[in-house]
């Protein structure tokens, strides 16, 4: 029987980039997985956690623990949300032993989308085709908290027609940073523009990443600058054919 995968689509994708979620479903189903979408899901609590509101983050995280209690695998199209669940739930449930235990049990079940493809589905070639020159942006939490670097590049390398051109500052932050992007808007905007300079230098027509929030920041700045470069989530690239 096909393995069951529970999709945590994230609030950003749910509300702003639903096509990314559909692309994830499409790729997983193409690889033979049975996708389950627990409809009670909302958010992992990261916005509150990163802004210093730990109690509010805890409340939302408890809801998450309840919703995904029966999951075998949880697949998340975001490095940042994956890291919140896998690493930071531990920080907020320090005084709730039962929830801490439940959170720890999630650590081995929760997978960022590209990692799930490589490590569980063992698929590098998912049969995608896209005639584009792309550049890949390492989103910070995927790179530094989950140590995801080669996987997405290997997946991109197997996309027919696609040319990957590395930018000189692939590992530099896009400047999003959650509430940082509005609390320090001018700094955040400056960081996005610096990042865009290095994207433009590659001559790529598309920027690919694992996190829709980074892509929202980059697309927002590209659009403001009037540059004809688009952004795509890795799942959208892999769903293309």
């Amino acid at each position: 029987m096909a393995a069951r995968v529970s999709l945590f689509v994230t609030c950003v994708v749910d509300q702003l980039f639903p096509k990314v979620g559909m692309a994830v479903v499409q790729v997983l189903e193409r690889l033979g997985f049975r996708v389950d979408f627990p409809e009670q899901q909302t958010c992992c609590g990261q916005p509150a956690f990163n802004t210093g509101y730990r109690e509010e983050a805890r409340q939302v995280a408890r809801h998450f623990l309840d919703v995904f209690a029966g999951a075998d695998y949880i697949v998340v199209p975001s490095g940042s949300c994956t890291s919140m669940i896998a690493h930071h739930f531990e920080d907020i449930f320090g005084k709730e032993p039962e929830n801490l235990r439940r959170a720890r049990a999630f650590e081995s079940k929760v997978y960022e989308f590209s990692r799930f493809l490589i490590e569980v589905a063992k698929a590098e070639d998912v049969g995608a085709r896209l005639h584009e020159v792309v550049t890949y942006h390492d989103s910070c939490h995927a790179l530094r908290e989950l140590h995801i670097k080669d996987g997405p590049r290997r997946l991109l390398a197997h996309v027919r027609g696609l040319e990957l051109r590395e930018m000189d500052a692939a590992e530099e932050c896009c400047g999003f940073g959650g509430t940082f992007s509005v609390k320090f808007a001018e700094v955040s905007g400056g960081m996005a523009r610096t990042k865009i300079d290095s994207i433009v230098r590659t001559g790529a027509s598309t920027v690919v990443s694992l996190d829709s929030s980074c892509l929202m920041q980059l697309q927002g700045a590209l659009s403001r600058a009037g540059l004809p470069i688009r952004t795509m989530h890795l799942a959208e690239v892999l769903a293309s054919h």
């Binding site: 749910d14 509300q15 639903p18 409809e39 808007a185 955040s188 700045a221």
Partner: peptide, 13 residues
């Protein structure tokens, strides 16, 4: 600093 994505006509759910 930058533009904002339009909310999707239909959410993922």
């Amino acid at each position: 600093q930058r533009d904002l994505p339009p909310p999707a006509a239909k959410s993922f759910r």
